Simulated scan of single mutants.
Amino acid sequence: MRFSCILVVLLLLGSCASVKTDYDPSVSFSSYRTFGFYPEMRSGLNQLDEKRVTAAVEALLKTRGMTLSDTPDMYINIFTRNYERPYNSSVGIGVGTGGRRGGIGISGGIPIPIRSNAASQEVTFDLIDAGRDELFWQGVYEVKVRNNASPEAKEAMYHKVVQKVFSRYPPRKK
């Protein structure tokens, strides 16, 4: 029983922060050796955060042997969507009896206002074939954001986002 509860909790935690990807299975990913950032990128980030994200992407792709270029094989487009997810918490109260021939039960929930909403950001990375101007891979990751985070914490957060998303690139074909 205890093992089952632990397994359910781990599955729920794992599903909260997953990377979602989609790609064109007909694409030969090994043909992309150079990259650049989409010229008309509107990331939705402020300039400081956009620099943090692009620097993290550039550093990661360079470690994989790719080269930043003015005439790239692929463009990287980054965009974000910010939203607030309601934070709900309550305490349940129950009264009941379970005799041999029946049962009676009453229950209710009392909301506990710990905090109002949790700020979240969905970060999307589109990889676009520069020659054909076609999307061939997309990675999406949702992260909780703190508005009062230090510059170092923001840099670490975006570095983690880039690492998680690009851990799925190139896709492992089955």
Rank of each mutant, 00 (worst) to 15 (best):
V8D: 00
E40M: 12
V27K: 13
F37M: 10
G65M: 14
L7I: 12
Y141D: 06
N88W: 09
R168V: 02
C5Y: 12
Y75H: 07
P113H: 01
S89N: 09
Y169E: 15
G99C: 04
Y83I: 07
Y169I: 12
Y169H: 14
L11M: 14
S116N: 13
Y32H: 03
Y141E: 05
E152H: 01
G92M: 13
N82R: 12
Y87R: 03
V95H: 00
K174W: 03
G102E: 06
Q138G: 01
P111F: 02
L45W: 15
G99V: 03
Y141A: 03
D73R: 00
A59P: 00
I106M: 08
Q121N: 09
L135N: 09
S26F: 06
D70V: 06
P171M: 10
R132H: 15
A56N: 06
I6W: 08
Y158G: 04
Q47S: 10
V140H: 01
L68S: 13
L10E: 03
R85L: 08
E50W: 02
S43H: 06
G99F: 11
A17D: 14
F166Y: 08
S26Q: 11
F125N: 04
R115Q: 11
V161G: 14
A55T: 15
E58Q: 11
S90Y: 15
S116R: 13
V9T: 10
N82Q: 12
N147W: 01
A118L: 14
N147R: 08
R81F: 07
R81M: 12
Y83E: 14
V140D: 01
P111H: 02
Q163A: 12
S116V: 13
M1G: 15
G94S: 15
H159E: 10
P86L: 04
F166H: 04
S69L: 00
E50R: 07
M41C: 06
S167K: 08
P171F: 08
I112G: 03
R146H: 13
N88Y: 14
F136A: 05
S31C: 02
G139K: 02
